[in-house]
Structure formats: C-alpha cells, structure tokens
C-alpha cells in the first residue's frame, strides 16, 4: 500500500451540481473521502446522479453546468494537495488519466473505432507518462496481458469492432491502468454484460487494483456487484449522499431507507432467480 492512511487520497466536500440554471440541483452537498488503495461502491437508483458525480470529479461536465464545493486531491504524495475545482484546465488534463482514470459502461463505444486497440493504449501511455513510441507499444502489450486477455500481440492489432463487450471492458481497464493512476472511477463497468462475464470482469478489476494499489470508486446500481468488489458503500439518493458505511454493515438497523431498499431489491432479485431456476428443473 502507498502512503499514510490518515491522509485521504481524495476528499469531496459539499459538492453540488446543477446542469441548467433554474433547474433542481442533480447533486446536493455531497461529502465523502477515499483513502489510498480503498475501494468504495457508489450505489443508487437510476438517475440519482452517480454519473454526474463521476464526471464532476474528472471535471468533464458540460461547460454550462454550475458546480460548487471542493474536491481536494492528494494523489500519491508526489505533489501538494490541490482543489480540483480551483485548478486550471492544463493541470486538470495532467490529472486525468495520470492520477484519476475512468472506465465507462459503454465499453466498445469508448474506443475510437478507427484506431487499433494497441495504439489507443499506447497513446495513453505516451500522453500520461511521456514514453516514446516503442516503449509505449511494449507497455501496451504488457497492459493487455495484465487484464487477462489472450494473445496480447494479436489483440493489440485488433480493431475495436472486433472485440466482444467483455474484451472491450478489459481493454477499458487496461486504458485506465495505462496512466498508472492512484484512483480509478468505474461507471457501471459491468452493467451491459451477462452474469458470467460480469463476475470475470469484476475479478480482473479486483486483481488489477490490488496489485497496483489503486483506489477504486465503483459506480453501480447493483448491491451484489458492490459486495463483490468494495469494502465500503456510499448510497446516493436523489442527489444526496444518505449513507456511507462498511460493506459488511449493510443489514444493520441504522441503515437509511434507500440503502434498505437497494439491499431488498438485490435479495428479491436473487430469490426470484432461484425460484425461476427451481421451476425449470
């Protein structure tokens, strides 16, 4: 693990976001912090503002969105802590990919269709680490290997449309790891996959993040996915952060109503599946 635990990696305080003037805010006074190497699941119903939170951490919201609050990022101790809300666009560009990386739900659509997979990974290596062309290419091959894809040399030459969703999401993780970040934000990385591929991908995520000591902010609406990967859960309900607790304390009576609802939903789902499976045998 990296630096001291008492110094959080990132500390979000009173973050509020409003997309359009006069509309209700999408995020209201959200505060939480993450330590180095920690993995947190951010759960909540569809439309509660999870993606908005992710995009505001990357400062990639539309230009006309109004954002308030502070996001103090300490990174791995290489630089003075900085408030991402206050830095200029150049600094932010240096943070993206290199210190905070992102994995998207639409895995195939997040790849440039007219560029070979290996070149896209190498491009990120070059941009974030200033490596030269051949070093970047070698590192791209290593990264493809690290996310568990077979025959990395051949895969580097593949085009995005030739990949399955699961393969593309592994490439998405390789792209996120390429900058050697201290935080990866994964926005519903497995929502578009079947259960089998989903658990494989989650395993790859866990392994890669452990190995590199990367903190993971996993966004999901599925408590089961959160339980598979995270050691803490933050629950977002209509723009407010209503619950923040260790993953094994989800059935305690002090949970917020929204948390209980999500846990119940997950239980119901697995029960329903068991029932259906029982009927089919």
């Amino acid at each position: 693990m990296k630096t001291a635990i008492e110094q959080p990696l990132i500390e979000v305080t009173d973050l509020s976001v409003r997309y359009k003037r006069g509309q209700a805010p999408v995020l209201r006074d959200v505060s939480f912090s993450m330590n180095c190497g920690e993995s947190i699941a951010l759960v909540g119903d569809s439309g509660c503002g999870k993606s908005t939170l992710a995009m505001s951490l990357m400062r990639l919201l539309p230009a006309d969105a109004a954002v308030r609050g502070s996001i103090v990022f300490r990174g791995d101790g290489e630089f003075e802590p900085m408030d991402l809300m206050g830095v200029d666009e150049r600094t932010m560009q240096a943070v993206r990919g290199k210190h905070i990386a992102m994995v998207f739900q639409n895995s195939v659509g997040s790849l440039d269709p007219v560029m070979r997979v290996g070149n896209q990974i190498a491009e990120v290596v070059r941009v974030t680490q200033g490596a030269d062309r051949s070093t970047a290419h070698k590192m791209a091959i290593k990264l493809i290997e690290r996310v568990g894809l077979p025959s990395p040399q051949r895969l580097a030459q593949a085009w995005p449309h030739e990949l399955s969703g699961g393969m593309a999401q592994r490439v998405g993780l390789a792209l996120a790891l390429a900058g050697n970040p201290s935080l990866i934000i994964a926005d519903e990385p497995t929502s578009a996959m079947d259960a089998n591929v989903q658990s494989q991908i989650l395993e790859v995520f866990r392994h890669a993040c452990r190995q590199a000591g990367v903190a993971l902010l996993l966004i999901t609406h599925d408590i089961c996915v959160a339980q598979a990967l995270a050691n803490r859960v933050c629950v977002l309900d209509r723009g407010s952060l209503v619950d923040n607790r260790p993953i094994d304390k989800l059935d305690s009576p002090s949970c917020h109503a929204a948390t209980k609802r999500l846990v119940d939903a997950a239980r119901l789902k697995s029960k329903a599946f068991t029932a259906i499976a029982g009927k089919m045998v």
Partner: peptide, 28 residues
C-alpha cells in the same frame, strides 16, 4: 460520441482529441 468523452477522460488535450480521434472519424 462516447469515445471522445473517454479520450478527454484519458488526459488528452483538446487538440490531441480533435486531430487524432475526431478528424479521422469525420473522414469516412
């Protein structure tokens, strides 16, 4: 497109995104 937003999230500058990803995709 999603890949443009993703390219920004990977730390590319606007110029890099436009020349390496947007223009090649406009060519077809």
């Amino acid at each position: 497109e999603d890949f443009v937003r993703a390219a920004f999230a990977r730390g590319l500058t606007k110029r890099q995104v436009v020349f390496r990803h947007v223009l090649p995709n406009t060519l077809g």
